[in-house]
Design a protein around this nucleic acid. Structure first.
Length: 419
RNA sequence: GUGAGUGUAGCUCAGCUGGCAGAGCACCGGAUUGUGGCUCCGGUGGUCGAGGGUUCAACUCCCUUCACUCACCCCA
């Protein structure tokens, strides 16, 4: 029996871990600029929360939920699950704080791990991180546009080339007609549809539109845009106009759909190439019916979630290859020098420098090799001679030059070398 | 849940028609007793995923199984 990580769970080391940190840092900076407030919510919630937001019969609740027992000695039916996404938990917290009746307009962001029991593939793990934004109490199209513009700023900061796809799903007024038209079309073409589409016809007719088996056939299906009512049409037109003014490079994809009824109007995804088939690195949209469906007041909602790992996959390697390297590695030689080296390290770190104190057990030659290996810009040698004279031997490992400096001048010299 | 591909050193991989288990990188040491990278020399490191079968002989062929990867499904 080997102790390996579980299927669908991942370790991140070195540059891979730095890439995730970079994505999260960038997203936090974006959230700060847009005056969003952090919300921290539990990873474990009642299963009922997800049953009510996604539907008891949905695949998500039926098959993909990580159900956990209350305690190891209480077998039987579990009523709690690890969160598969952030939105229901955020709404639950929003309602529990009474904000829907007190102060309904709220702007939140959150970041953390989500869990879905699925077959892993590229860009799809059983534990993954999402950076999410949820805005409540804003029904206007400007809010939808600003969310997409926010993501555009985020991806530009990371230097990512992506494609924005947007669509409008309509609302309770106009969607039923579209759905009915799709059903009718599906029944008329029943013989031509693939086996998967026969399932979709029963459970989720909107998904007929993104069939991969016969994309040409799906093209001939009714298009949602033709069924939008006047208010939905106006809303979407405003979103498009504002995106155009902001210079967001988007395309309208009429086949971009969501399965559940509380999704309304604007929906969007950010598509990254080089991520594999799971190419949507950000997904979001308007969900005006969801707060009410979870027992709150009729408050509009809109938001998105960034897939942190998927975004990191799309990052160019050179964006995060460096960054872990210390300004200096300290090599202490001899018993007396160790305490002094620790003190030197403290002084330098206090000045904001990145310092690694190497093991004094290693041979000097091996210490230099180590300093080089971890990418240290400098090696600082502290032995009996230097100790006596109150100096440090500072070697520039890139330039292969070295000089003896008074201890007090080392920090400034290292900072200067940072450039 | 379905399909395909891949499992050999820490990593990336080679291994022919079945005949001694290999390379590069990494790591450790030496050439250089307080000086890295480059070079040279040496060394550590193997359940060939696992189990079974065929054979004088299996990393190699056959069966089973497990794991990983990609894709489908799904994607709230």
């Amino acid at each position: 029996m080997k102790l390996t990580r579980l299927r669908g769970f991942q370790d991140y080391l070195g540059a891979d871990a730095r890439a995730l940190g970079m994505v999260e840092d960038c997203a936090r900076a974006m959230a700060y600029r847009h005056a969003l407030n952090e919300i921290r919510i539990p990873a474990l919630e009642r299963i009922e929360l997800y049953e009510r937001s996604s539907g008891e019969t949905s695949d998500v609740v039926q098959k993909q939920l990580y159900r956990v027992p209350r305690a190891s000695d209480s077998p039987g039916e579990s009523d709690q699950a690890l969160r598969p996404e952030g939105t229901p938990g955020v709404i639950r917290a929003y309602l529990e704080a009474g904000l829907d009746r007190g102060d309904p307009e709220q702007r939140f962001f959150y970041c953390g791990p989500m869990f879905r029991y699925e077959r892993p593939q590229k860009g799809r793990l059983r534990q993954f991180n999402q950076f999410g934004v949820e805005i409540f109490g804003r029904a206007d199209a400007a809010c939808d546009a600003e969310l997409i513009i926010m993501i555009d700023e985020f991806r530009r900061a990371l230097g990512l080339e992506v494609r924005f796809e947007v669509n409008s799903l309509g609302d309770g007024q106009c969607r039923p007609a579209f759905r009915a038209a799709l059903l009718e079309w599906g029944r008329a073409h029943h013989a031509e549809l693939c086996a998967d589409c026969h399932q979709r016809l029963e459970h989720n007719p909107l998904r007929l539109l993104d069939c991969k088996t016969d994309a040409a056939l799906a093209q001939s299906a009714p298009s949602g845009g033709d069924y939008l009512c006047a208010p939905c049409r106006a809303h979407f037109a405003t979103v498009e106009r504002l995106l155009g003014v902001a210079g967001v490079p988007y395309v309208v994809n009429p086949r971009l759909v969501r399965g559940l009824d509380y999704y309304t109007r604007t929906t969007f995804e950010v598509i990254s190439s080089a991520v594999g088939a799971q190419s949507a690195s950000v997904a979001g949209g308007r969900y005006d019916g969801l707060v009410e469906a979870l027992g709150g007041a009729a408050v509009a909602g809109t938001g998105f979630a960034i897939g942190v790992e998927r975004t990191a996959l799309a990052l160019a390697a050179d964006r995060h290859a460096a960054g872990g390297a210390p300004d200096a590695a300290i090599i202490a030689i001899g018993e007396a020098a160790i305490a002094s080296a620790i003190e030197l390290a403290r002084e330098l770190r206090a000045g904001g420098l990145r310092i690694e104190l190497l093991s004094p057990d290693r041979a000097v030659k091996a210490s230099f090799r180590r300093a080089d290996r971890i990418g240290a810009r400098h090696a600082l040698i502290l032995g009996d001679d230097e100790l006596r004279a109150g100096v440090v031997l500072m070697r520039d490992l890139r330039a292969s030059a070295q000089a003896t400096l008074p201890r007090g001048e080392v920090a400034a010299a290292l900072a200067a070398a940072r450039g």
